[in-house]
Amino acid sequence: MNTDAALLAELHRLRRAVPEISGAVLAAVDGLLVAGDLPGIDPHHIAALSAAGLGIGGRFAELVGHGPLRESVVRGADGSVVVYPAGEEAILTAVVRPETDLTRLHAEARPAAQRLGALWDAVRQPTVATAIPPATDPDAPLATRTPMATLPAGLWSSPRSPGHQ
Rank of each mutant, 00 (worst) to 15 (best):
residue 1 M to D: 00
residue 1 M to S: 02
residue 1 M to E: 01
residue 2 N to E: 09
residue 3 T to I: 09
residue 4 D to Y: 04
residue 4 D to W: 03
residue 6 A to P: 00
residue 7 L to R: 00
residue 7 L to W: 00
residue 9 A to L: 03
residue 12 H to N: 13
residue 14 L to Y: 06
residue 17 A to N: 14
residue 18 V to I: 15
residue 19 P to S: 13
residue 21 I to Q: 02
residue 21 I to V: 10
residue 22 S to C: 14
residue 22 S to E: 15
residue 23 G to N: 09
residue 25 V to E: 06
residue 29 V to Y: 06
residue 29 V to P: 04
residue 30 D to Y: 12
residue 32 L to C: 13
residue 34 V to S: 01
residue 36 G to Q: 04
residue 38 L to H: 02
residue 41 I to S: 01
residue 42 D to V: 01
residue 43 P to E: 00
residue 43 P to Q: 00
residue 43 P to M: 00
residue 47 A to V: 09
residue 48 A to P: 11
residue 48 A to L: 13
residue 50 S to M: 03
residue 51 A to E: 02
residue 52 A to Y: 04
residue 52 A to R: 03
residue 55 G to V: 06
residue 56 I to N: 08
residue 58 G to R: 07
residue 58 G to P: 08
residue 59 R to V: 03
residue 61 A to L: 10
residue 61 A to H: 10
residue 61 A to W: 02
residue 62 E to S: 15
residue 63 L to H: 09
residue 63 L to F: 03
residue 66 H to Y: 05
residue 66 H to R: 12
residue 68 P to D: 06
residue 68 P to K: 09
residue 69 L to I: 15
residue 71 E to R: 12
residue 72 S to H: 08
residue 72 S to E: 08
residue 74 V to R: 01
residue 74 V to H: 05
residue 76 G to L: 13
residue 76 G to Y: 06
residue 77 A to Y: 07
residue 78 D to R: 12
residue 78 D to V: 05
residue 81 V to N: 02
residue 82 V to R: 02
residue 82 V to L: 12
residue 82 V to S: 05
residue 83 V to K: 01
residue 83 V to F: 02
residue 83 V to G: 01
residue 84 Y to A: 05
residue 85 P to K: 06
residue 85 P to R: 07
residue 85 P to I: 08
residue 87 G to N: 08
residue 88 E to K: 09
residue 90 A to D: 02
residue 93 T to M: 05
residue 93 T to K: 06
residue 94 A to L: 09
residue 94 A to N: 07
residue 95 V to P: 00
residue 96 V to A: 12
residue 98 P to C: 13
residue 100 T to E: 04
residue 104 R to V: 14
residue 105 L to E: 11
residue 105 L to V: 14
residue 106 H to D: 15
residue 107 A to P: 06
residue 109 A to P: 03
residue 110 R to Y: 07
residue 111 P to W: 10
residue 121 D to Q: 08
residue 122 A to S: 14
residue 124 R to G: 03
residue 125 Q to L: 00
residue 125 Q to V: 04
residue 127 T to N: 01
residue 128 V to M: 12
residue 130 T to Q: 15
residue 132 I to L: 15
residue 134 P to I: 07
residue 135 A to S: 15
residue 137 D to Q: 04
residue 137 D to V: 06
residue 138 P to L: 06
residue 140 A to Y: 09
residue 141 P to Q: 07
residue 142 L to S: 11
residue 144 T to N: 12
residue 145 R to F: 08
residue 146 T to A: 04
residue 147 P to N: 05
residue 148 M to T: 13
residue 148 M to N: 09
residue 148 M to L: 14
residue 149 A to L: 03
residue 150 T to E: 10
residue 151 L to V: 13
residue 152 P to C: 03
residue 152 P to G: 05
residue 154 G to M: 11
residue 155 L to S: 10
residue 156 W to P: 02
residue 156 W to D: 10
residue 156 W to V: 07
residue 156 W to L: 12
residue 157 S to D: 14
residue 157 S to L: 07
residue 161 S to K: 11
residue 162 P to L: 10
residue 163 G to H: 05
residue 163 G to E: 07
residue 164 H to N: 03
residue 164 H to L: 03
residue 165 Q to D: 11
